[in-house]
Design a protein around this nucleic acid. Structure first.
Lengths: 159, 159
DNA sequence: GCGCGACACGTTATACAATAACACAGGTGC
DNA sequence: GCACCTGTGTTATTGTATAACGTGTCGCGC
């Protein structure tokens, strides 16, 4: 299951590629890509689905990289803040960004059967909602757009 | 601040009206609108903003209607399940529905300054996201659409 | 009346999510 | 050296949510 379109793919390349892209972005932006931050990003890329902060933390603990919640949350906050990962509000969980580097406003398709998450792009403050906001004088700064349903691989499977 | 459009309005009528509409809906659907459920709905309507489950619970406890988390969560689940209230995923909080009875897919404008929440309607699986879902064979069952920003009443206020 | 299932509620305990607050360690610039 | 900044380590606490099990009540068929 692919975070992009639920398709199979070569997983090792998308981990190494993801890490490489972020290293490059950090270098350009003068950000510190520390071991903890790198490892957390790798974990998100490996899992390739939404992962809870405490699942991350458990792995960090096993590997001796930090054992307390703030360690995981600080790394996740860094990744989210700079667009290398996203938080899935519906699941209170995190996922690696499928297009690191791009400045984008993401939307997600979440499979309630297998927990796979696909990321797609949206128009920033799109359509009806943007229109409604404009009419009332509301200034949109950030949008959360998450659709829950069943992915193609899980169609027809027992519930 | 109004949940509909951040405007002032007669609050007592929108509480009584909201409760009456839900009573009617429950009667038609054969649902039990019990004292706890009614009180929770009233609390949501009174507050007229997103309310955390534990804030609800505190009030229930004061009034002797139940003191443990499941009591509040069960009432909230009932209201959400039948469309009488919505969960704001971004805030982990709940709000009374502005259009009870309608079968709708809501969207929200959330003010990060005053916490007011406005509900608007969306096209069910609208625009780009629906298109992306269709292309990959994903079946959308529910969408979360929440925009965070600054409401007209808070524009220009100190942060 | 009695047994039965369905549903709501009560209670205990626990898991998962998130942050506050403070200490320390390593670089950088002066 | 020293002030400063950033990142990490640690303790403690708060907030959000659910599992699991027990109790009460109502309506229904017998």
């Amino acid at each position: 299951m692919d975070s992009l379109g639920f398709k199979h793919h070569d997983h090792s390349t998308c981990i190494s590629g993801g890490v490489a892209a972020v290293i490059q972005s950090c270098k350009e932006a003068g950000l510190q890509f520390t071991p903890v931050r790198k490892r957390v990003l790798e974990l998100l890329l490996e899992r390739h689905r939404a992962v809870g902060a405490y699942e991350i933390l458990d792995t960090l603990r096993e590997e001796g990289l930090g054992s307390q919640p703030p360690v995981a949350y600080r790394a996740l906050d860094f990744l989210v803040k700079h667009g290398f990962a996203h938080k899935i509000e519906r699941l209170n969980a995190f996922i690696a960004c499928a297009h690191p580097g791009d400045n984008h406003s993401p939307a997600f398709l979440i499979c309630r059967s297998c927990d796979a998450v696909a990321e797609t792009a949206t128009v920033a403050a799109g359509g009806r909602l943007g229109q409604a906001a404009e009419e009332t004088g509301f200034t949109i700064e950030r949008t959360v757009l998450e659709a829950e349903g069943v992915c193609p691989n899980c169609q027809g499977k027992p519930e």
